[in-house]
Simulated assay, not measured.
Amino acid sequence: MFSLKEILSVTLTLFAIIDILGSIPIIIQIRQREGKIHSEKATIVAGVLMVAFLFVGQSILSLIGVDFQSFALAGAIVIFLIGLEMILGIQLFRSDPLASSGSIVPLAFPLIVGAGTMTTLLSLRAAYSLPNVLVGIGLNLVFVYIVLKSSVWIEHKLGKAGEDILRRVFGVILLAIAIKLFKANF
């Protein structure tokens, strides 16, 4: 049932797709804007989204008449806007001080669990046994939680100049990812 090789493959594949390390500048930006990252809430919501999509994702998209290409394009638009925010130093996503939703949108969705993660989950489900996929999701969520919980420490270690450079570099990378999603799904 459990296979260390499958668990490792699933974990590394999801790790590359989620790219929580590449999201550090966005995490810092959200924390600065919101005042706090709700690490537990973001991790739990991301976990629920991943597991739910693993089981019913294809059915839900089919039921509402949305194909994967449209879903991926919608995610690409959000990622594109976040990249613009990072590069230009503007704020497109307005926060509601009462809602503190930055930990959910755009952090849990679409940064941690975006169209790429969801598509990958469906592919992994077809290629590996379900228990191994679930363990891989769990291991990635532990790492996501650690990075989110350490965002203040990471920001302190980077410093203002390091944070600015990283934010702009990853902003360009996000734009490139968004454009790649556009090209692949348009």
Rank of each mutant, 00 (worst) to 15 (best):
I60R: 09
A184D: 15
V142L: 15
L124Q: 01
V144A: 02
S39W: 03
A161F: 08
H156R: 15
V142D: 07
I20T: 11
L158N: 07
W153F: 10
V48H: 00
L122Q: 11
V56S: 13
R167T: 15
N132D: 14
M50E: 06
N185D: 08
V10Q: 01
F182G: 04
Q29N: 14
G65R: 13
T117D: 09
F80K: 07
I177W: 03
V172C: 12
L98V: 09
L88C: 14
I44H: 02
L124W: 02
G35A: 09
I7N: 00
A108T: 05
N140P: 11
R94P: 07
V144I: 12
I179M: 14
S59Y: 08
P131G: 12
Q91F: 04
S3G: 13
A178L: 06
E40P: 00
M50D: 01
S95Y: 07
L134H: 10
N185I: 11
F55N: 03
S39Q: 03
T120K: 13
P97S: 07
K160A: 13
M86W: 01
G75V: 01
L139Y: 13
S151H: 11
V152C: 02
M1R: 10
A46L: 04
Y145C: 07
A178C: 06
L73S: 00
F15K: 04
G47C: 08
A72P: 05
P131F: 10
F68S: 00
L141V: 14
M118W: 01
K36M: 13
S9D: 09
Q29F: 02
Y128F: 15
V169K: 03
F55M: 03
D19R: 04
D96A: 12
V10C: 10
V152W: 05
I79A: 03
M50C: 13
L124S: 01
G138E: 02
I146N: 11
P110C: 09
F15E: 00
G22M: 08
K41G: 00
L122C: 05
L148E: 02
E155D: 14
A178Y: 00
S123I: 09
K157T: 05
M86K: 05
R167I: 05
F68T: 10
L174P: 01
V172Q: 05
M1N: 04
P131R: 12
M50Q: 07
I18E: 02
Q32Y: 06
K157E: 07
I27T: 04
V147E: 02
I165N: 06
H38V: 05
P131E: 13
A127V: 01
E163H: 15
R168M: 07
S39E: 10
I28Q: 13
F68M: 14
D164Q: 10
V169L: 15
K41P: 01
V152F: 12
F170S: 08
I44Y: 11
E163Y: 15
G83N: 06
H38N: 14
G159F: 02
K36S: 13
L21W: 12
R31G: 09
A76E: 00
V142R: 15
L139N: 12
L12Q: 05
A176E: 00
A108Y: 06
V113E: 01
Q58R: 15
Q32T: 07
I146L: 15
E155T: 01
V51A: 04
Q69E: 11
S151C: 07
L111F: 02
T43H: 03
V152R: 15
A46E: 06
G114F: 00
I173T: 03
L111R: 03
L14I: 12
A46N: 02
K157Q: 11
L141P: 04
L107F: 06
A127S: 14
V152Q: 12
S3H: 08
I82T: 04
